[in-house]
Write a protein that binds this DNA or RNA. Sequence first.
DNA 1: TTTGGATGTAACATAACTTATTACAACAAG
DNA 2: CTTGTTGTAATAAGTTATGTTACATCCAAA
Lengths: 140, 140
Amino acid sequence: MAANSRLTIAVHALTWIALAQRRGQEWLTSEQVAASVNTNAVIIRRSLGDLRRAGLVEVRHGAGAGWSMARTPEDITLLQVYDAVEREPLFAMHHTEPNLECPIGRGIRPVLGVVYERADQSLRRELGRASIADVLRDCL
Amino acid sequence: MAANSRLTIAVHALTWIALAQRRGQEWLTSEQVAASVNTNAVIIRRSLGDLRRAGLVEVRHGAGAGWSMARTPEDITLLQVYDAVEREPLFAMHHTEPNLECPIGRGIRPVLGVVYERADQSLRRELGRASIADVLRDCL
DNA sequence: TTTGGATGTAACATAACTTATTACAACAAG
DNA sequence: CTTGTTGTAATAAGTTATGTTACATCCAAA
């Protein structure tokens, strides 16, 4: 299993909804999205639920229910999707506190924190450059 | 448990070995490194084993055995450490092949592959800017 | 007002990964 | 030889990712 595919699933779902809307279908059910992603509808509902909490999609209940974009594909970057679905930091610190009597044990965590923060920023900058509209265009 | 701490452990181990050598101790045992990182010596042996396979440290067997740097701290970047200990890509594709009858299912993987590649490159560029010597200096 | 189809979420199952720990064969310096 | 350390296997416990079933809740439309 290893690295998770949450960003992949969420971007796929959003891009497919964007294409369906361009074709005139305003609301898509989780079953319809799941058919394109080829996974269980509950996985899609959980992913789209994250995106809804981040304000990227809207949901409608009752008969004729489904999911719809809350913004245009041009206004949703992969960084926003990443922030919506990803919880863990890129790199973890020690599980147990290092030995504070050692100069390295004392100093390493803030030092690595700065390095990891810079790496995270550059990753996010790159993800911020691509939008759902870009992904949709390149898929076709 | 969540995100792994392999990069953290390996950088800590290397930095501590670098400091010990500067203080005149040429060879460190996995027990001595483990005492600073505050973990089991086997964890350290596995991490240093990865670094040895990448040519970053040397090992000596028999009585008086231990670990030593194979290069100067200035010549080891966190990117080299990252490559030595990290196997998984940053983002995974779908677990199951998406629906190839859908235009998005057909096109999404190469498109995301390009985006993920760019994100990975920028992360690596940032990790390549910091050396073990930098980490050691900032720890003191 | 009823109904039917979809969401939201809990519960559970499975597989993989991470860290920790014990045990021990292989190894080499003295 | 002796002794201390490495390299690695085996095992365990905790966590996460994904998939699946089940069902209460919701609401547009009939």
